[in-house]
Nucleic acid binder design. Structure first.
Lengths: 163, 163
DNA sequence: AGTGAATAGTTCGACCATCGAAATAGTAGG
DNA sequence: CCTACTATTTCGATGGTCGAACTATTCACT
């Protein structure tokens, strides 16, 4: 695939347009990667996202509830129930009624799902580490600054979209 | 939102883990941005992706065909027909049978869709330009190198998944 | 205590995006 | 021209998602 904007010539100026293009390519590729990974494990995009959110929450100590998951995934309550049904039926997690508020359900993962998560991230993480191995400390700082400002910009423009 | 890994302190070491985290946050945010944008225009994710692919092809001079669009979107032929039906019914594009091979259909965009595309990218692009304004030339090169190697890494790991 | 309002989650019926298979139309080779 | 092939569409079925109605639980107020 040719972009018409290449020539990775190190002496060429790096325009904003080029950065936008690269950013878009990266999101497209990582999107496609997630899609293929899910496909090979019988998981839909939504299920993968749900697992990621639940795993992140678990890592921080407080277990997810269906309603928080719903708003994190921009999904209706009923759709969230369906997602959790699928994941529970597949043995990736189980529901646990909260002991303090028995309306609430706490979502806990099975080790199996944790293993899938590791299987997902490890190869990519290792390959990333390899790709970034020869970056100097100042370069890494520049990249981190770039990523942070881009995230903030995206969040801000999205915020303007909401009523 | 707190990640547990921050302190944007410029003297802190930028680990691979931090870069992975930032990368994931960025893809999540841009994903969400696209979702909200599409929602506000009555377009599904697939429709937005299709418009982007068709617009890119048009910019390079050769109009998309349904089958090439299908493989670009990882979609079946029939699903692609449905997408195009939606987009045509909404007035974003029209079908044009090729004059040289009358089996083929060429997809052309209406100005309306081009305007939507501009409306999509301009605010984000401007905000990005603003966010990156104070980056030096060497920093930009580092970032471009980082993005390119990350894209390549993603493509490669995905490739291993395929067989 | 006890009634009413609010919150958490699930079930139900409908919709629509996607799929695979078959149908239609056109092209190319022998 | 007849067969094989390509490009696209149509059709029936599957399944993810939604909104509305329902159950269970908690909170506020008297």
């Amino acid at each position: 695939m040719t972009t018409g904007t290449e020539d990775a010539d190190d002496t060429e100026a790096v325009t904003d347009d080029l950065l936008v293009l690269l950013l878009r390519q990266l999101t497209v590729e990582s999107d496609r990667f997630a899609e293929m990974f899910g496909e090979s494990h019988g998981l839909h995009r939504t299920d993968l996202n749900a697992l990621a959110v639940i795993m992140d929450a678990a890592r921080m100590g407080d277990p997810m509830s269906p309603s928080r998951l719903a708003s994190a995934l921009h999904l209706s309550a009923s759709a969230t129930t369906a997602v959790l049904d699928r994941l529970e039926r597949a043995g990736h997690l189980y529901r646990d009624r909260s002991s303090t508020d028995r309306r609430k359900v706490e979502l806990r993962m099975h080790d199996q799902a944790r293993r899938i998560g590791a299987e997902f991230f490890q190869p990519l993480g290792q390959r990333y580490a390899e790709a970034w191995r020869d970056m100097g400390e100042d370069e890494r700082r520049a990249v981190a600054r770039f990523l942070r400002s881009s995230i903030a910009a995206t969040v801000e423009v999205r915020g303007r979209l909401a009523p």
